[in-house]
Design a protein around this nucleic acid. Structure first.
Lengths: 136, 136
DNA sequence: TTTCTTTCCTATTTTCGTAATAGGATTTTA
DNA sequence: TAAAATCCTATTACGAAAATAGGAAAGAAA
């Protein structure tokens, strides 16, 4: 019951890209250094997001990424599903006492994840930053 | 986003014990063999459940386990928390864009898990078995 | 008392997916 | 042409989970 680093890094990357909006391109190097993530590792993740059509890339100088669709339309459900892969629940599904419970749990999770978007994450961050400012 | 075998085994064991009710003791060997689980591995899990006060044990011939409280009062929340350990979310919590989202996710999960009990699992199983009987 | 059956305890090994590293190939701009 | 970025693929490192192993302690029945 946790999220892998791959997934967390993907979300961080998407948020960074979304925050830049159309005002410019976001590069892997930039984000990786700012967030203390391995550049090479984040590259792999950028690639996956690009192949899946969540972001669009340009190579070369002034290259980088931007979102393929609006941040409000990018749900955490699709990002997590992409990064974590299909929940391999072969075994738990085969235990008859658990299968209904598991189905229900997945539905609960999905509805939460599909109703939260990259846009929401950015708003959340603003809220928190506001709180910090107020406290200091 | 998955449940470990440890946890699944624990749930299987609890369901087996609950199903026997007060009519007799349930042994590790019995359950392990029926479910195709390593006896030694399941022993460890029985021990953990016992230490946590979820079940009560007797050694020796005619020994075994029974539930410490009613199946309706044994929530999956406490079982999963016990077996999976505290969700170590150090990293994700530190990412300001994700912390509110993560809190919400945990709350959603908890409310689902705390409202489902071992009793429910047994009922689910009956339902499914009923379906199977009908089909055959 | 002895024997057998069960849980309990602890250490070690195996296994496997994630995380990270590495080295280049390709594309694009200046 | 050089530099900067993404893209591609293989390999290594790491750690937690899963399983194995061997006995110790407790208790029932002969």
């Amino acid at each position: 019951m946790k999220l892998s680093r791959r997934t967390i890094y993907a979300l961080i990357l998407l948020v960074a890209i979304a925050k830049n909006g159309d005002s410019g391109n976001t590069t892997i190097k930039e984000v990786a250094q700012k967030e203390g993530i391995s550049v090479k590792y984040l590259e792999q993740i950028g690639c996956v997001l690009c192949k899946a059509g969540l972001i669009k890339s340009w190579r070369g100088p002034n290259g980088g990424y931007h979102l393929e669709k609006a941040a409000k339309d990018c749900t955490l459900g699709e990002v997590i599903k992409l990064m974590e892969g299909e929940v391999s629940s072969d075994y738990i599904e085969s235990v008859s006492a658990l299968s209904l419970f598991w189905d229900g749990l997945c539905k609960t999770l999905d509805s939460y994840l599909n109703s939260t978007t990259i846009y929401d994450l950015i708003e959340n961050e603003k809220t928190l930053d506001g709180v910090y400012d107020y406290c200091i």
